[in-house]
Design a protein around this nucleic acid. Structure first.
Lengths: 221, 221, 221, 221
DNA sequence: AATGAATGAGCTTTCATTCAT
DNA sequence: CATGAATGAAAGCTCATTCAT
C-alpha cells in the first residue's frame, strides 16, 4: 500500500500542452475523451476509441496532447473549471427563511451529485487518485470546495444575524454537505437501487435541513 | 440503473471456482491479488504482476480461478466477509453514556475508513461499480450495511430508554455515519493532506457525536 | 513451403510405448483420444480434454503414452489395424454376376467412405500427413490398400475366367475405387450438401459398375 | 451434417476487412500467411510466425485483417480466385482429336493437383472443413467446379458432334476427373512415394483417357 | 496541422508436460 | 500406478505511441 509508484502523474501535471484552450479541435477531442473516460475509466479507455469518438485521427490526438495521461488530466481540469464553477449560485438573496434556503441547497446538492456526469467524475477521480493526485486536488478545489465556501459564507451571514449559533461555519458547512449524501447519493455511488424521485429528494432535503437546524439553532435558556 | 450492460460481472460473481476456501495456495494468491488490485485498480492490474506478487506461476492463477474477473470478485468477497464483518462489535454494553458510545463509534469509524485497506476497497468498488455491480452490492451488504444495522440497533435501544428521540433510527444511523465522513475521511479519499492524528480524530468524533445528540435529544418543553 | 520441419513426427513413430495393448485403461484412453482428435484435429485437441473425455487424470495419459504425438499415432494405428482390417470381406463367392458384385462393392465403398468415422480419419490423415508421415502410410496400408488388394484379387479371378479383359488388375482396381468417389464421397469430404440416400447411392453404384464394365468387357470383333 | 456449429467461420468469411485488395502490404501478408498456413495448417500456424514470415509486425496483421480466422479465409479466397480460376483454358480449340484432348487434360490435371500449392490447399481445406465450411465451398466453386464445368462444356460439344455417347456430361466429367486422381495424385495426398515423372504422368494420362473413351465411345451395333 | 499505417511491448489465457503425493 | 497442482512457454490479440506522407 502507499507504494508511492506515482505512475504517469508526476509528469502529467501542470498544464496539458501549451494550447490556446480556445481551439475547436481541442474542444472536440476533449468532448470525445470525456465520453470515453467517463464510460470506461482511465485504463479502460483506448486512444483509438477516443479518436473515433472525437471524429479525428489518432495522430491528431498526439498533436494536441502529450499522451493519454495528459489528455485525461486536461479533460478533468476542463470539467472542474468550466462545468463545476458556474454552479456556485446558491441564494445570494437572504430573504428566504434559513430553513427554506437550506432545503433548496440540499435538494440542489442531491440532484447535482446524482447526475450522471457528477457520478462519473466522482468515480474516476476517486478511483484514479493514486495515479493522478493533483487531479483530485483540482477537482476538489473547483468542485466541492467552491460549493463549500459558498455555503460557508451564507452560514457566516446567518450567524451574524443571530439566527444560528455556529462556532466553525466551514466545518459545519462540510458537515451539512455530508449529511446531504446519506441515503440517496451514497447508494447511487454504489450502484444500488434507490428512490430518487423529486418527492423523495424533497423529503430527504427537508429532513436534513431540519436536522442541521436542530444542531445549530440558538438555545434560549 | 441496474442496466443490463453487465460486462464480465454477471457470470464472474457468485463463487470463484468451487474452491474449499481453506486452500493455502488460494490464500496466497488472493493476498497477492489484493496487493496489486488495491494499488492499481482492476484494469491497471496485470495477471503477470499478480502471479509474481503471489509467488506463483501465471498458470497457477488459472488453476484456482476462472480468470481475472473471477479472481477480482473472489478477493472482494473474501475481504467483505472476513475483514469487514468482524468489526461489528460496537458497544453491546449499554453502560457507557450515550455520548461516550457515539464518540467511540465515530472514532472507530474514522480510523477504519481511513485505513489503507478500506480506502483502497472504496476506491476500487466505486470505480468499478459499472463493471462489477454485484461486487458493490456485496461490499455494501457486508461492509457498510452491517455497521449501519449495528448502530441502528443501538439507537433503537436508546430510544426505548427514552434517552433519544428518533423517529427513523435507520435513517439517523446512516446520517450519523455520513457525518463521520466529513473533514478527515472525505479528504483522504481525495488524497488530500489532512491531520489524521489520534487527537484530531478524537476531537472530530466528539464534535460529530455532540452534533448528533443535539438533533435527537429530547426537548423538555 | 516444404520447409522440412518435420516436427514431432520422427520421434513419435515406431510403436507408442511398450504397452501390452490389452490394457483396459489404455483402451479407455484411446477411445477418449479418438473422440477428441476426430472432432478437433491434432492441434485443436488438448490433453486436458482427452483426459476428461477418457475419464482419467492428465498424469495417467503420460503414464501410458509418451506424449500427445505418441497418443495420436497410437490411436490411428489402432484404428487402422482393428477397425479397417475386418472390412475386407468382399465377395469370396464368385457366384454372383460380375456386374452385381461390382455394384455391391461400389455401394459398400460409398457407404463406408461417407461414414463419420471414415470421413474423420480421412480428414485428419490428409491434414496431418506432413507432421505424421508414417501415420498416413499405416492408414494407407491397413485401409485403402487392403480393399484394393481384395478387389485386385477378385478382378484377377474374373480375368482368368475370361469375363473381363484387364491388363493391370491392380491399376484398374484403383481406378474403380476412385470412380466410386465421384459425386457423393468427394462432396461429403468438402462438406457440401449431397443426396446420399440409399437410392442415390445404389443408382450411382450401378452407373459406376457399368462404366467400369464398358472399359474392360471383352470386345468380340 | 450441415450442422450449425459454424465456429469462427460464419462471420469470418465473406470479405476480409474491406481492403482494396491492391494493397502491397496486404499482398505481402497474404504471401507470408500462405507459406505458414500451407506448412502447418490452421491451428498449427501462429500469428507471430506469419508476421515474421511476412516481414511485418504482429500489430500490422491486425490492422489489415480482423484476426487469424479472417486472414485464413482471405488467403484461401485469394488463392481460389486468382490461382485456380485462370487454369480453365482447356482446349477451346476442338481441332485436336478427342483422345489427344482428354490426354492433355488429364496430364494438366495431374500436374496441377500434385503441385505443392494444390496439395497444401487440398489438405487444409479437407482438414478444416468443419471449422470453415464456406471456405470449402469457395474452394470447390472456384477450383474444382470450374474445371468441371469446363470439361462438361467440352464433352457436350463432342457429344453434339456425335463422337461420344454421354447421357449426363456433367457426371461423366466428374467421373473423368476422379479417374485422373488414381495412382499418382491419391498417393501424393497421402505422402506416399510415387513416380511422378512426366513420362509416368503421360502414360497414366493416356491410360485414363483411353479408359474414358471406352466407356463413352458410340457402339456401332 | 492532420492522417493512419506500422510498431512492439504487454495483455489475458491456454496448453503440453512434470512431479510430489 | 493414479493423481492433479504447478509450471512457463507460447498463443491470439490490444494498445499507446511514432512518423512518413
Amino acid at each position: 500500500m502507499d507504494d508511492g509508484s506515482a505512475g504517469p502523474s508526476a509528469g502529467a501535471d501542470g498544464a496539458a500542452s501549451a494550447e490556446p484552450a480556445g481551439c475547436a479541435k481541442r474542444e472536440q477531442i476533449l468532448k470525445g475523451a470525456g465520453t470515453v473516460f467517463l464510460a470506461n475509466g482511465y485504463e479502460g479507455a483506448s486512444m483509438s476509441r477516443i479518436a473515433q469518438m472525437a471524429g479525428v485521427s489518432k495522430g491528431t490526438l498526439y498533436n494536441h496532447f502529450d499522451g493519454k495521461a495528459s489528455l485525461f488530466s486536461a479533460f478533468f481540469e476542463e470539467q472542474a473549471r468550466c462545468r463545476l464553477a458556474p454552479i456556485e449560485a446558491l441564494s445570494r438573496n437572504d430573504e428566504q427563511s434559513v430553513r427554506l434556503t437550506l432545503i433548496r441547497f440540499a435538494e440542489m446538492a442531491v440532484h447535482m451529485l446524482i447526475s450522471p456526469m457528477a457520478l462519473g467524475l466522482y468515480r474516476i477521480i476517486v478511483g484514479e487518485v493514486e495515479k493522478f493526485p493533483n487531479l483530485a486536488d483540482t477537482f476538489w478545489r473547483y468542485g466541492f470546495d467552491r460549493k463549500l465556501s459558498n455555503l460557508t459564507e451564507y452560514l457566516t451571514r446567518i450567524v451574524a444575524r443571530g439566527e444560528l449559533d455556529i462556532a466553525d461555519p466551514r466545518l459545519s458547512a462540510e458537515q451539512f454537505m455530508l449529511m446531504c449524501q446519506a441515503r440517496i447519493v451514497q447508494r447511487r455511488r454504489f450502484g444500488l437501487p434507490v428512490d430518487d424521485s423529486d418527492a423523495a429528494i424533497a423529503e430527504f432535503a427537508a429532513f436534513t435541513a431540519d436536522s442541521f437546524l436542530k444542531i445549530y439553532e440558538p438555545r434560549h435558556q
